[in-house]
Every structure is written in structure tokens, then in C-alpha cells.
Design a protein around this nucleic acid. Structure first.
Length: 111
DNA sequence: ATTATGACTTCAC
DNA sequence: CGTGAAGCCATAA
């Protein structure tokens, strides 16, 4: 039986679920960990389905600038609210101390 | 198979 | 990090 979602999506979900609280990561970092580092957009695409399908903390996944690009799909300031709740300072849809809260799967999980 | 789109990334000004 | 343009890969029609 074929999986409902492609393996690519499944991998993204697992990595995002492994993100510790108070930490965030970028699409490129996840894509790179999966081996598809050129497909950072696909990670975002996977997250689009993740929110509606799995309990994936997509709010912990932002772009390289620390900008809450995904808040648009969260539907309001829901994403920013969750981040601030975990101790992450967010201002004007931008994560402050982004370098401090940045969490790389390759570095933490080990490649 | 081809075209279009997308929660991105990088380079340049 | 502000804006603009090009590149990249996977999904949908």
C-alpha cells in the first residue's frame, strides 16, 4: 500500500517534530538534512500539509531571515503567539536572537 | 511529458 | 536586513 504522503513530506514532519522548544530552524536547514538542500521551497510546501495533517510544530520553522513567512498560512498571529510562548522573542514577524534560537538538524541530530 | 505555482535561498544594489 | 531578479525542486493539473 502506498503512503498517502510522499516520503519527502514524512521526513520533513519527523525533523520538525524533533525541534526542541524555544528553538527554530529554517527550511533550507531541513532540506539540507533531507539531502534536498536545493528544495527549501518543498519543505515549506510539506509544512503546508503538515499543519492540516500532523501535529508538526510548523511555527518553529521559519525562513533564513527569521521571518515568520508561514504565519500567513497559520491564519493570523497564531504562529508568533506560539513562538513567544516558548520563550522566543518575535517582533514585527521577525524572530529576534534568531542566531541564538536557531536549531540545525544536521548539527544537533548529526548528519 | 509540459506548464504553473509555491510557508525558499542566494546574489546584487 | 529592504527590495528585486534568478535558481532550484516537488506537487498538481
Amino acid at each position: 500500500m502506498k503512503t498517502s504522503k510522499s516520503n519527502f513530506f514524512n521526513d520533513v514532519y519527523e525533523v520538525v517534530k524533533l525541534i526542541p522548544e524555544g528553538r527554530v530552524t529554517s527550511y533550507g536547514a531541513i532540506a539540507e538534512y533531507l539531502g534536498t538542500k536545493g528544495s527549501a521551497r518543498m519543505v515549506g510546501w510539506a509544512m503546508h500539509g503538515a499543519v492540516a495533517t500532523h501535529d508538526v510544530p510548523a511555527h518553529r520553522v521559519v525562513n533564513r531571515q527569521g521571518l515568520l513567512t508561514g504565519k500567513i498560512h497559520f491564519g493570523g498571529d497564531r504562529m508568533q503567539r506560539l513562538l513567544e510562548k516558548e520563550g522566543i522573542r518575535v517582533e514585527d514577524d521577525i524572530i529576534q536572537n534568531f542566531e541564538k534560537v536557531f536549531w540545525e538538524p544536521i548539527k544537533e541530530l548529526g548528519l
